[in-house]
Computed example of a mutant assay.
Amino acid sequence: MTTPSRIPPALPVAGGGLTDFTEGWLANRRLSAHTRAAYRRDVQQWLGWCAGRGLEPLRASFLHVNAYARELEATVDARSGRPLAPASVARKLSALSSWYAFLLRLEAVTANPVGGADRPRVARDVSATVGLSAAEVDAMLAAADRLDGPTAARDRVVLALLADLGLRVGEVVALDLDDLGAERGHRTVRFTGKGGKPRRRALTPAVLRHLEGYLEVRGDAPGPLFATATGGRVDRHAVFRLVRRLARDAGVPAWERLSPHSLRHAFATAARDEGVPLEDVQDAMGHADPRTTRRYDRDRHNLDRDPSYTLAAARSRRTKP
């Protein structure tokens, strides 16, 4: 195996020269555009950290990664004003681990330095996303119905897709007009899910009602389904602002801390509360692991849903004279 002192000359060594290599790594991963952009930022942040310390990234050890991780944990998130969540730090290190694993396969490094690093512990059963009750989601949808102005029709569809289908914000903003379709009597939307997986979902009557009104305004020109006044694609930041504005208008107490992902959590919780089987919610949300779906079900510890009640009721029906 090649040692760090004998790195193949075709591979760039300087931190700034690894950009092309990083793009090659990303191209070899099945990732959504949003995840690819996030991973790119994560690697660039690491390379910047290394450059600031005169450290060659291909010769970094787990001690350097540990120092980097501790600095990340002390970093204050500009949006929340709080230190980065352990899950955010863990995600950044996970991206670096994948990057180094790719380097290892190319024999550009002798070991993955992230593998021996001290990563933050993240509880798989807990999510830090601020949740919403079903009543709060209803109030936000009602606030969207009261919108007026040139973007009102568009914004109503965006919120309905987040609330009724539980889509990720990246999936919503990446939609094009030709992603809309029909299948076996259902109106559908096709999109690329996490991991680059092609997916499709059925549209609810409420989404369809708002969508038809929006398409009358938008027209049938090909391109982004949700466009700005200048024709560009609506971005994630605009959807963040929309969600918080509607939550504020709806009187949601935690509106300043909400995100589009809060509606995705609410979708899972409401579906499970209405008796939708876990595996159906898992499929709808595109989760490979059911434990991920359970994290989104914030009401899963509600004693009203204790299965002992269901079993007791069934026994009572069987033994009733």
Rank of each mutant, 00 (worst) to 15 (best):
residue 207 V to L: 01
residue 220 D to S: 09
residue 137 V to W: 08
residue 170 G to V: 06
residue 141 L to E: 10
residue 182 A to S: 15
residue 182 A to G: 10
residue 223 G to H: 05
residue 154 R to M: 10
residue 217 V to F: 09
residue 239 V to K: 11
residue 140 M to K: 06
residue 201 R to L: 15
residue 142 A to R: 12
residue 211 L to R: 01
residue 230 T to M: 08
residue 151 T to W: 12
residue 197 K to A: 14
residue 239 V to L: 09
residue 208 L to K: 00
residue 153 A to E: 13
residue 174 A to W: 11
residue 129 T to K: 02
residue 145 D to H: 05
residue 192 T to V: 15
residue 162 L to G: 00
residue 203 L to V: 02
residue 153 A to S: 10
residue 187 R to I: 10
residue 238 A to E: 13
residue 174 A to E: 11
residue 221 A to Q: 14
residue 147 L to T: 02
residue 195 G to E: 12
residue 166 G to D: 05
residue 169 V to S: 13
residue 146 R to P: 03
residue 197 K to Q: 14
residue 149 G to V: 02
residue 150 P to D: 06
residue 166 G to W: 11
residue 139 A to C: 09
residue 202 A to I: 15
residue 157 V to T: 00
residue 136 E to F: 14
residue 171 E to S: 07
residue 227 A to I: 05
residue 127 S to Y: 10
residue 208 L to D: 00
residue 206 A to K: 09
residue 215 L to R: 09
residue 211 L to C: 00
residue 166 G to T: 03
residue 154 R to Y: 12
residue 242 L to C: 07
residue 181 G to V: 10
residue 241 R to I: 05
residue 234 V to A: 04
residue 146 R to N: 05
residue 125 D to E: 14
residue 168 R to L: 02
residue 231 G to L: 03
residue 128 A to N: 07
residue 133 S to V: 05
residue 212 E to K: 03
residue 191 F to G: 04
residue 141 L to T: 00
residue 158 V to F: 10
residue 209 R to P: 04
residue 179 D to A: 15
residue 238 A to K: 05
residue 201 R to S: 15
residue 209 R to G: 09
residue 155 D to V: 07
residue 201 R to F: 04
residue 235 D to P: 05
residue 242 L to P: 00
residue 220 D to C: 03
residue 162 L to Y: 14
residue 131 G to P: 06
residue 151 T to Y: 13
residue 128 A to C: 04
residue 233 R to H: 07
residue 205 P to D: 10
residue 137 V to L: 11
residue 212 E to Q: 05
residue 162 L to C: 02
residue 200 R to L: 14
residue 196 G to F: 05
residue 210 H to S: 04
residue 125 D to Q: 14
residue 234 V to H: 04
residue 181 G to Q: 02
residue 215 L to H: 03
residue 161 L to N: 01
